[in-house]
């Protein structure tokens, strides 16, 4: 896991549910690569094609609420979003995200201060997110969890741990 990275902001609102992230109708597609084209389809159908590797999603409260489908964090990881910074997350999505190699950070103020297209800089080492001159504190993530995100999620992390 890179200790510091920059990314361009895509801004989404409150209560982005897992049906918005990946609607049920696309869950039957064979691969995550097929599915990822439909990320956020009900809300912003053009968005998935515009997201570039390394981009950052900044959102409001309760991101990932709704069903427990693990495909939601899986397709965001497949789009190579470097992290999500939201005010809060729904519990099951939160765990599923880390287990699928997707980094989630929490901050209450950034959302109201940034605009779409801004560049933010994430510094994991000192738990800061920088937007221009302003800095925002995020809760620190234990090294173990960062290593899991770096490995690509729980299954590869465990395989690596087990020397497979």
């Amino acid at each position: 896991m890179k200790e510091a990275f920059k990314g361009r902001v895509w801004k989404l609102g409150d209560d982005i549910d897992t049906d918005i992230i990946i609607p049920t109708q696309f869950l039957a597609l064979k691969t995550v690569e097929d599915m990822k084209k439909y990320a956020f389809n009900p809300l912003r159908p053009e968005l998935a094609a515009q997201i570039q590797p390394g981009d950052i999603i900044v959102a409001g409260k309760n991101f990932g609420c709704g069903s427990s489908r693990e495909q939601a964090p899986e397709i965001l990881a497949a789009l190579k979003i470097s992290c999500i910074i939201a005010k809060s997350y729904a519990r099951i999505f939160y765990r599923n995200a880390f287990n699928n190699g997707l980094l989630l950070l929490e901050n209450n103020e950034l959302y109201d201060c940034c605009r779409e297209g801004d560049e933010v800089s994430v510094q994991l080492e000192n738990s800061q997110v920088l937007l221009g001159e302003k800095s925002f504190e995020v809760a620190s993530i234990p090294t173990d969890l960062l290593q899991m995100v770096e490995a690509g999620g729980l299954v590869p992390f465990m395989r690596k741990r087990n020397g497979k």
């Binding site: 427990s68 693990e70 099951i92 939160y94 765990r95 599923n96 880390f98 287990n99 234990p142 173990d144 969890l145 729980l154 299954v155 465990m158 741990r161 087990n162």
Partner: peptide, 19 residues
């Protein structure tokens, strides 16, 4: 409650991260 992927990891390690 947790998902089955995490349960598999507990089976192997006896640990889990929580908030």
């Amino acid at each position: 409650g947790i998902g089955y992927t995490e349960m598999a990891a507990i089976f192997g390690t006896g640990q889990l991260w929580i908030k």
